[in-house]
Design a protein around this nucleic acid. Structure first.
Lengths: 325, 325
DNA sequence: TTGTAGGCGTTATCAA
DNA sequence: TTGATAACGCCTACAA
C-alpha cells in the first residue's frame, strides 16, 4: 500500500502538497496538481482512512445496535440505515445484541473506542443510565430514555387504535391482543394502551397476552396461539403486535379449522415485506421503516455537526388492509 | 476522552508502563500494575482503537458485501457472520451493493482504505480481475473467482438433484424450474445443471425459466408464475431456486385454483426461517447458513494470520420435506 | 522493572 | 504557491 510519502517522493513535492491536492485545499499550481494526481494513479494510491480518523477524532462510522438482523423488521431497518448512511458518506457497523445486556454493553464500549460518529439503538436491554452517560451522539428507536436523547418511533398509539377499530368495524366481538412484554417500557406498548382504550370505549370483550418478546424463539408463538384458541373458542379477532406473530396466528387458526377472515380476523403490525410473499396476505399496520432509517442517520449527523435537531420524532403509520380482515 | 498520557501522568509512570499493563506484556511490579489499573478506572480510560489500528495496520473489521440485507437469506447470513466475528473479536461492516457495480466497487475501495482484516463477498457484480487484484483477504460466497481465492458454497449440484428427484419420485411428469440468470457464472447455476441432468435421465418434460435475479423486484415473480401457469397448464411440479420464489409460486398456484401438493408440487431452496411462519410450509433444500457464516469468518482469519486454509469449501445441503410436496 | 524516542499515515499550523 | 514540523494516541525497540 503506497502512502502519501511515496506519492510525494515520486512526484517530487512535499507531503503537504499531496495532501492539499487530495483535499482540494489552498492554492496549488495546475502543473503541480496534475503531476500529483498522475503519480497517485501510477502508485494506485488510496489515502489511509484510519490515519484520517485518528486525526479527525471520528471514523465516519455509525453503529447500529439491534436485537438481531435476522428479524425481518430489523433487517429492513438495517437495509435503510445502510442506504442513507452511504448517501452521507458513512459506514454502518452491524451489532446484534441478541438481547443480551452484556453483549449490548460490550458493543457500546467497542463503538466508543472506535470513535464512531454515533449509535443507533434499536435494542434496549440496559438501564437508562448506561445510555445517558455515553457522551456519543445517539438515537433510540422506539424507546424514550430522557429529555436529551432523541428518539424515533412510529405513532404506536394511533397504530393500535387503527388495528383495534378495524377489527371492531368488521364486526369482531371478542378480540385477542398478542403483545410483547409490557413491563419493558418500550414505546411499542402504546399499541396495547390504544387497544385497551378502544376495547373499553366500545365495550368489547378482549384478551391480552404477553409474550416474552424473545425474537428468536418462534416456537412459543405457535404454543401461545394454540393455547389461546383452545381457551377462548369464541374469539373472532386477533391483533398481533408484529407480522410474524400474526403469521403464526394465521397458521394456528387454519390448523384449528377456522376460516380467516370469515370466522376470525387477523391483523399484524410492522408492514414487513415478507407478508406479501404468501397467501393470504396479512393485514397490517405499516411502519415507515425507510423514513425511520433516514431520520436515524440524519439525527446522528446533526448531533455530530452541532446542528439543532428534534428530540421527539413520531412518524405516521398506515393501515394496510389486505386479506385477513 | 482520557488518553494513555493522562493515565500515565496521573499514575506517575510513563506511557510505556501503562501500555505494558494494558497489554499484559513484559515485567511490571504488582504495585505499579494495580496503581495503573486503578487510575484507568478513575479516568474511565478506554484505549483508542483507531490509534491501535493505525499501528497494527489492521482494524479487526470484516467487510460483508451482500446484495441487500433485507433479503432473508442474506439477513440470516449477516446474522451468523456477525455472531462468529464477534466471537473472534472482530466487527462487521455492513455493505449492501444493491447489485450496483459502482456501489460494490466503492465499498471494496472503502474497505481497503479502512484496512479491514478481510472481505466476505456475497455480491458479485464485477469482473473477476476486480476481485483478483485487491490484495486483501477475501472469501467469496457461491462464486469461484480463481484458484487462489477461497470460496464457500453449499453443494448446489446435490441440492438441485435432491429437489428434482423428489418431485419425480412424487409422480410429477412435467416440471418447471425457475432460476436466476444463468449467464452470471454463479455456483448456484449448478442447481439448474442438476435439474437438467435429472430431467434428462428420467425423460421428464420440463420448462426452465430464468429471472433476472433482481432481489428487489418481487413483482416480477408474480408475473412470471402467472405466465408460466397460463402457458403450461399441465405443469405438476415446480422447483424454485429460492424460497421466496417458491412462496410466490405457491401463491400463484393457489390463485389459479390449483391445489398444492395434490395438483402441483412445489419445492424451494435456501431453507430460510420465514417459510415456517406460514401455512402450508414450503419444502426446501436447506443451506447450512450458520456454517457458511462460521467458515467465512474463519477463512478471513486464517488468511490474515498466514495460516493454511482450504480453497474449496462445499458444504452439504439437506432436504426439508414439508407440506408442498 | 521502568523510561525515552521514534514511527504508524494524515492534516494543520506556521514559515518561507 | 510550497514545505518543514508538530500533532492524533498508541506500541515497540532500545536503553537505563
Amino acid at each position: 500500500m503506497a502512502t502519501i510519502h511515496d506519492v510525494a517522493l515520486k512526484a517530487g513535492v512535499s507531503v503537504t502538497t499531496v495532501s492539499r491536492v487530495m483535499n482540494n485545499r489552498g492554492y496549488i499550481s495546475e502543473r503541480t496538481r496534475s503531476k500529483v494526481f498522475q503519480t497517485m494513479e501510477e502508485l494506485n494510491y488510496h489515502p489511509n482512512e484510519i490515519a484520517r480518523s485518528l486525526l479527525r477524532k471520528r471514523s465516519n462510522v455509525i453503529g447500529l445496535i439491534i436485537p438481531a438482523v435476522s428479524h425481518p423488521f430489523f433487517a429492513e431497518l438495517a437495509n435503510h440505515v445502510e442506504y442513507y448512511a452511504y448517501q452521507s458518506g458513512c459506514k454502518v457497523l452491524l451489532c446484534n445484541s441478541q438481547l443480551d445486556p452484556v453483549k449490548e454493553k460490550e458493543y457500546i464500549d467497542m463503538l466508543k473506542r472506535n470513535m464512531v460518529d454515533g449509535i443507533v439503538m434499536g435494542s434496549h436491554t440496559l438501564e437508562v443510565d448506561a445510555y445517558r452517560n455515553l457522551h456519543s451522539p445517539i438515537v433510540t428507536i422506539d424507546r424514550r430514555i430522557d429529555e436529551d436523547i432523541p428518539y424515533i418511533s412510529s405513532d404506536n398509539y394511533a397504530g393500535g387504535r387503527l388495528a383495534a377499530e378495524l377489527l371492531i368495524s368488521k364486526g369482531c366481538r371478542k378480540i385477542a391482543h398478542i403483545c410483547g412484554n409490557l413491563t419493558l417500557n418500550l414505546l411499542a406498548n402504546n399499541r396495547s394502551m390504544a387497544f385497551r382504550d378502544v376495547m373499553l370505549e366500545h365495550g368489547i370483550e378482549n384478551v391480552v397476552i404477553q409474550t416474552d418478546m424473545n425474537v428468536f424463539d418462534h416456537d412459543q408463538y405457535g404454543r401461545i396461539i394454540g393455547k389461546l384458541l383452545r381457551e377462548h373458542e369464541d374469539i373472532d379477532g386477533i391483533f398481533a403486535t408484529s407480522d410474524i406473530i400474526a403469521a403464526y396466528a394465521l397458521k394456528g387458526c387454519t390448523q384449528a379449522g377456522k376460516r380467516v377472515p370469515e370466522d376470525i380476523r387477523i391483523i399484524g403490525y410492522d408492514g414487513i415485506g415478507a407478508v406479501s410473499w404468501f397467501e393470504p396476505e396479512i393485514s397490517s399496520i405499516r411502519q415507515p421503516i425507510s423514513e425511520i432509517g433516514r431520520l436515524a442517520v440524519e439525527l446522528i449527523r446533526k448531533q455530530r455537526d452541532g446542528e439543532p435537531f428534534e428530540r421527539e420524532n413520531i412518524l405516521p403509520v398506515e393501515l394496510m388492509e389486505r386479506s385477513t380482515t
